[in-house]
Design a protein around this nucleic acid. Structure first.
Length: 624
DNA sequence: GTAGGGTTAG
């Protein structure tokens, strides 16, 4: 029954059917027709139709193994088949590494004109290699092949090449390729801009961005995400506004980066507007949008809303779960965070090292020492994830906060990698909280060896020496501070009112509503005094007079931000503050009382976690 | 056939 002589019409018909197929079974039927017609036996002549079959299978149905099996039946694939197979494999993270062997086979036949690599060969090959291996050498090697096969001047190849160099972090080479491209299109520009931004050179990225002849939404998004990923959150929002002014419509990719900035700035109003925009424009709750929204709501103090979104998501992955775990942990809802982790485990979802930072953090903020130990072991034993410095820092923090200073010290001593200032800093924090100045002194010295400008270590030593009236020590350390040229990180707090983020430094007097803010602070000081509150000046470095100390405590940035919140929002409104550093003991007790006196919920995110102050109590139960 | 996205301790 074999039809031996296929005619043109049959082939054209099958080709059109192939393009219209909406299911795998259609493609299977077409595949069997192709075989019945004996098209695979015609040397090279009909390879193109098999190439299209391979592409359809992988692009539309992710049937990579099927595509591979078709390809493997051809002893001498031509360029079409090779290219299709390379492109197909480049679409799948699991199969990307196989592109190398396909390409090596193609190279072996390179002298045969019908299978020679051409400019359609390199883009997918380069992408696969860059993503799968993240190594510079293979890219350089392929670069020489691009030259050898005369594909240099093709704009797609050039862009793929420069983008591969970007992906493996070789910006010098990518700039060189970009500079030498005879023709560039907007993708070439975008790739270069995003590469510079991704690797931290946002200023050069911005300069190049300004030079793009015709910017599109990807150009803007590259710049916006570059700012956001590098922690330039104000610039992220400014750029987003500029994009709107330029009349370019954002899409879900743009908004995901903007949401991340909103979360970090605590800009709940803008975050909510973006959420609304995403809903209205039919951008569903995909994995990226979902995790960005969950993160934004958590960081803006709305864990409840984040949890609702989390429950509503039909598909979840490790990033979504990690964001939720971290969010709950930040709010001191450790048990709920662990419940989500256990759920992941039951479903067989593979956690990553970030997930475990959230898990350990969850244990830390509620003092679950035993569970912390358990999950720390679980990480390497069950999931083969090697603990890194952040995991050790979490563990030290967990033990130290719980008052187990000796155990924390032993834990550091047994570490398999060299502890850094952050790990030591976690122990130092515990020494301060639990008043162990002897151990603290040793730890601080240790830290100053690693980082001679470490401000936390200096501040600890100043306080320790002044408490102990060790004037020699104090003089010495003050000298060291001067010589080292250390700079204290200035405390800053933000509050969003009517969709505008207002920022305050300690002692800030620059706000237009300054008079009302300070009048409110005076009023609060009186009310607090009437409640029997007296400032706790332990947190202030010794060398200021008592009265000044009280003064400087009272103008910590979070107090100014709260006072501003009180004068600029209607009675009863929740006040949400974000602070860059940890809240000090004095502010913490003062804010507890303020929440009672003014009958407001005050939600403070400090450098470390969330505090929900309600009616004179804090959600952290004073365990922080 | 090339470009843009989310979660990371203290």
């Amino acid at each position: 029954m074999k039809e031996r002589k296929p005619n043109r019409l049959q082939i054209t018909t099958l080709y059109n059917l192939l393009r219209l197929s909406s299911s795998i079974s259609h493609l299977k039927q077409i595949h069997s027709r192709l075989l019945l017609l004996g098209l695979h036996q015609h040397q090279h002549q009909h390879h193109f139709i098999f190439a299209h079959l391979i592409l359809s299978l992988s692009q539309r149905f992710s049937s990579f193994d099927y595509a591979l099996s078709i390809y493997s039946h051809f002893p001498n694939p031509n360029t079409f088949l090779f290219n299709a197979m390379l492109q197909s494999l480049s679409l799948s993270t699991q199969h990307q590494k196989k592109t190398i062997s396909v390409y090596l086979l193609q190279m072996r036949n390179a002298q045969c004109p019908s299978s020679r690599p051409n400019c359609f060969t390199f883009p997918s090959l380069l992408k696969s290699c860059a993503v799968a291996f993240s190594l510079i050498e293979p890219i350089k090697e392929i670069h020489t092949h691009v030259v050898k096969f005369g594909s240099c001047s093709d704009v797609y190849v050039g862009t793929a090449l420069l983008d591969s160099y970007v992906k493996v972090g070789d910006l010098v080479s990518s700039r060189q390729v970009f500079g030498e491209m005879p023709v560039r299109n907007v993708a070439s520009w975008n790739s270069m801009v995003s590469g510079l931004a991704k690797w931290g050179d946002v200023d050069s990225a911005r300069k190049l961005f300004e030079e793009i002849p015709e910017k599109n939404v990807v150009s803007w998004t590259s710049m916006i995400s570059g700012y956001s990923q590098n922690g330039y959150f104000y610039e992220t929002l400014a750029m987003f506004e500029e994009m709107g002014n330029a009349g370019v419509r954002p899409n879900d990719v743009t908004l995901v980066s903007v949401l991340s900035a909103c979360g970090n700035l605590g800009a709940l109003g803008l975050g909510k507007r973006i959420h609304g925009f995403l809903d209205e424009n039919g951008y569903g709750l995909n994995l990226f949008v979902g995790s960005a929204l969950i993160d934004m709501y958590c960081k803006c103090g709305m864990v409840g809303d984040a949890l609702m979104l989390f429950e509503r998501m039909s598909e979840k992955n490790v990033v979504v779960c990690s964001a939720m775990i971290m969010g709950l942990a930040m709010h001191g809802r450790g048990l709920e965070a662990l419940a989500i982790f256990e759920d992941m485990r039951r479903r067989g979802m593979q956690p990553n090292e970030i997930t475990f930072i959230g898990v350990l953090c969850a244990c830390c903020h509620v003092g679950l020492v035993g569970k912390g130990h358990y999950y720390f072991c679980c990480m390497s034993e069950e999931y083969s994830i090697v603990p890194k410095l952040p995991h050790y820092a979490c563990m030290v923090d967990l033990l130290g906060r719980a008052g187990l200073l000796g155990e924390a010290y032993q834990f550091i001593a047994k570490m398999s990698i060299k502890p850094d200032v952050v790990v030591w800093g976690a122990l130092l924090g515990a020494c301060r909280t639990h008043g162990d100045f002897e151990l603290g002194e040793r730890v601080a010295q240790q830290m100053l060896e690693l980082d001679p400008k470490h401000c936390g270590a200096f501040v600890f030593l100043c306080n320790a020496y002044s408490r102990a009236a060790n004037w020699d020590g104090l003089t010495k350390i003050t000298k060291m501070m001067e010589i080292s040229g250390m700079k204290r990180t200035p405390g800053r707090s933000w509050i969003e009112v009517n969709n505008v983020v207002h920022q305050f430094f300690a002692g800030d007097k620059s706000h237009p509503l300054n008079d009302r803010i300070y009048a409110k602070l005076d009023e609060l000081a009186k009310l607090l005094a009437a409640e029997g509150y007296s400032p706790n000046t332990k947190a202030v470095v010794y060398d200021v007079e008592e009265e000044e100390k009280q003064q400087s405590l009272f103008v910590h940035s979070e107090k100014i931000a709260i006072a501003f919140g009180l004068v600029s929002t209607p009675a009863g409104t929740d006040i949400r503050i974000v602070k860059n550093l940890r809240v000090c003991d004095d502010c913490h007790s003062a804010i507890k009382l303020v929440s009672k006196i003014v009958a407001r919920v005050i939600i403070l995110r400090d450098g470390n976690r969330f505090h929900h102050f309600v009616g004179g109590m804090c959600s952290c139960k004073d365990y922080w």
